[in-house]
Structures are given as structure tokens and as C-alpha cells.
Simulated scan of single mutants.
Amino acid sequence: MKSYYFDHAATTPMHPEVAQAMLAVMQGSGGNPSSMHAFGRAAKGQVSAARDLIAAAVGCRPAELVFTSGGTESDNAAIIGTAAAMKQSGKSHIITSMAEHHAVLHTCERLAREGFTVTYLPVDKSGRVSADDVRAAITPETGLITIMHGNNEVGTLNPIEEIGELAKASGVTFHVDAVQSFGLYEYRLHQLPVDLMSFSAHKINGPQGVGALYIANGTPFEPVAHGGSQERKRRAGTENVAGIVGFAKAVDICVNNREEKKLFLDKLRREWVERLQEAMPHIPIVINGHEDAESRLPHIVNISFIGIDTETMLMNLDIAGIAASSGSACTSGALERSHVLRAMGLPEDRLNSAVRFSFGLGNTMEDLEDAAQIVGKIAARART
């Protein structure tokens, strides 16, 4: 049976060139980047070269990038590290949105239990945060605003530049979770009003288990991990040399193919919706998220199959060899409905029938045409 992988927002298949770059490191002589001998210096050189490449790609200084184990650690470090620094300035208020990834929401919940005050901003029916709401929420006690760029469940983009200007004018640290949008949009961080930004390699056809956190020079920050002096004492622990080299290779590929990739992904997305509409003319399907292509990620489409329960649809899709999800991969094993769709205020029939499809490396137009016919048959059976 042929299989179809339409869950690239959860993780992406590794690019062959990334695997080759990592294999060369893993088959090499080894060496700890903190060691003073030749093997250690060689490993450190590989990490430094990767840092230089990624920094150039996102428009920041190499020293402003901290390597982490992925997006979740980057989000946690940004928020907890800023919160620890906030205490020294007497600030205790954090602003975020109701539609953030759980790596942000659960971290804010923990800080709330420790005495911080957290404001959870609403989102509109497309999942977008209003800059006016951010402005209204800022108080003299506000020390951190954390808002994602591209939503991982519905793909809606937030106005991070506008929000960043508000934060800058108020002297508030601004963190952006760019895990889902990284590789699709050009960031020139030295020009953006952003103090911290989180990235992950496995969303851009790189390895799992490695990411990065941008920390602009001068940003108040206390390290979360303690031990050695790695990453300029901001993140202790021996660096994942092979993973970091693979991360850099994935970034290099993205930089050289970004615009072409965006156009192709958007074409796949539009083609998928059209094929589904043709395959199930009598079954109402509704797109959740922003309609404007300029206001959403090109590779994610969240669809409600009205009258068909999400779990029923996902189970049948899996049996048929089609990989999709109900939302964040970090919570897909849970039976609870999407907190993002709830925050958007969707009616129960859309909330209970939503499935996320996301596209990327390896997907073809022919795959979409074949898979749409399969989904149409599943939907017809499910409604009988």
C-alpha cells in the first residue's frame, strides 16, 4: 500500500544532503568542542562554522545564537530566562496569546504558579493576535511579550514587527516562537524589533533534537541550564556537533530555495483543497485559518469535515496510509480538542471535525490527486 506523508508541520523528513553532512561528522575522529587538543579544536571549528552560517542566514551576530535541543527548549529558555532577569528589575507581568504552542503556554502557567502575572490575549476567528490588544495589555509591570510568528495548527501569521515596535517603545522584552515559520520567511534580526527568537531544525528537513535561540545583545537573560561554560555560559552541556552541522546544512538549503519552496508549497495547499472539494461535493468542508495567502504559512491547511469526528477521520486516514494530525504533534496523543481552534471561537461542528494537513519535501501533485480520492471515499463511508 502506498503511503502519503502530509504532516510536515509535526516533523519533516531529513534532506539527503543533511544526512550526508551529519554522517561525515559521526564517522569522523570525534572530539568535544570544549577540549583543548586538536580533536576538540576541530569539533569547535565545525560548531563555529555552523553558527556563522545560520547567523548570516537570519541576520544576526554569531555570538547572539545559542544552540539548544530544539524548539521547546528554546521557548522554555527564552521565557524562563527572561522571567528570572525580570525579577531583578521588579517586573512580574508576561503577555502571551491563547493560541501559542504548549511549549509557551505551559511555561507561562508554571511561572504563574511562581507568582508572575500572565495575560492571555484572545485571537480573532483566523487565529491572529491583535496588536491593539497587545498595546492595551502592556502595564508598567510588563517585562515580557511572547507571541509566535506562524501558528503551527492553522498557519496564521501574527504581526510580529508591529508588536515588536510596541514592546520596544515600552521597554519590554519581546520573544517570538518562529519554529513553524523558520525556513519560509527571511529574517534580518538586526533590523527587527525582536529580542529573542526560537528555531528548530527538524521543521526544515534537518535533524530532530537540535535548535537555536537568538538572544539579542543586551537582552536581560539568565541561563536555565547550568554546568559548563558552553554557549558563552548561556546553555551548559556538550554541543550536539553532528546535529548542529546538519542544522546548518538544512538552513543553507532553505536559504537557496526559499522563494521557490514557498510557491510550490502554496500550490500544493491550494491543489489539495481543490481536489478534496471535487472528491466530496456533497460533504461540507471548511478551511480554518486566514484566507489571505500573505497572512498565512504556505504549507499548512486546517480543514473541518463537517459531520465527521476528527478521531474517526484520523483513524481511517492512518489505515489508508495517509499521515495527518489534529494539531500539535506534542499533544496529538491526547483526546482533547485543539486549544487553538477553541481560542478562535469556532462552533462545535468545526471544532470536532478538524484535521491538519501540512506539506513539504517529497509531496507531489500526483500524490495529492490520489490521496484526495481516498479521503473522499473515507468521508462518504463515515457519513453513511
Score class of each variant (00 low, 15 high):
84 A>G: 05
84 A>Y: 01
84 A>W: 03
85 A>E: 06
86 M>L: 11
87 K>F: 02
87 K>E: 12
88 Q>V: 06
90 G>L: 04
90 G>Q: 05
91 K>S: 03
91 K>N: 02
91 K>M: 09
92 S>Y: 13
93 H>I: 03
93 H>Y: 14
93 H>N: 15
95 I>D: 07
95 I>R: 05
95 I>S: 01
96 T>A: 15
97 S>L: 09
97 S>K: 00
98 M>D: 00
98 M>C: 08
98 M>S: 13
99 A>V: 13
99 A>H: 02
101 H>A: 15
103 A>F: 06
103 A>N: 15
103 A>R: 13
103 A>I: 12
103 A>M: 12
104 V>T: 12
105 L>T: 02
105 L>E: 08
105 L>V: 03
106 H>T: 14
107 T>D: 04
107 T>M: 13
107 T>E: 13
108 C>P: 00
108 C>K: 07
109 E>D: 09
109 E>F: 02
109 E>R: 06
110 R>H: 08
110 R>T: 03
111 L>N: 00
111 L>F: 10
111 L>S: 05
112 A>T: 03
112 A>M: 01
113 R>Q: 00
114 E>R: 08
114 E>F: 01
114 E>V: 10
115 G>Y: 02
115 G>N: 05
115 G>D: 04
115 G>C: 04
115 G>T: 11
116 F>K: 01
116 F>M: 07
117 T>M: 12
119 T>V: 07
119 T>A: 14
120 Y>D: 12
121 L>Q: 12
121 L>I: 07
121 L>M: 10
122 P>M: 09
123 V>L: 12
123 V>D: 09
123 V>M: 00
124 D>A: 12
125 K>D: 01
125 K>C: 01
126 S>M: 11
127 G>N: 07
127 G>W: 04
128 R>N: 09
129 V>I: 02
129 V>D: 03
130 S>R: 10
131 A>M: 06
131 A>P: 01
131 A>H: 04
131 A>W: 04
132 D>P: 11
132 D>L: 14
133 D>P: 04
133 D>W: 03
133 D>C: 09
133 D>R: 06
135 R>P: 02
135 R>C: 11
135 R>F: 15
136 A>G: 09
136 A>W: 03
137 A>K: 09
138 I>T: 12
139 T>K: 13
140 P>G: 06
140 P>I: 04
140 P>D: 00
140 P>Y: 01
141 E>F: 07
142 T>K: 08
142 T>M: 12
142 T>P: 05
143 G>V: 03
144 L>F: 02
144 L>C: 00
144 L>Q: 05
145 I>R: 09
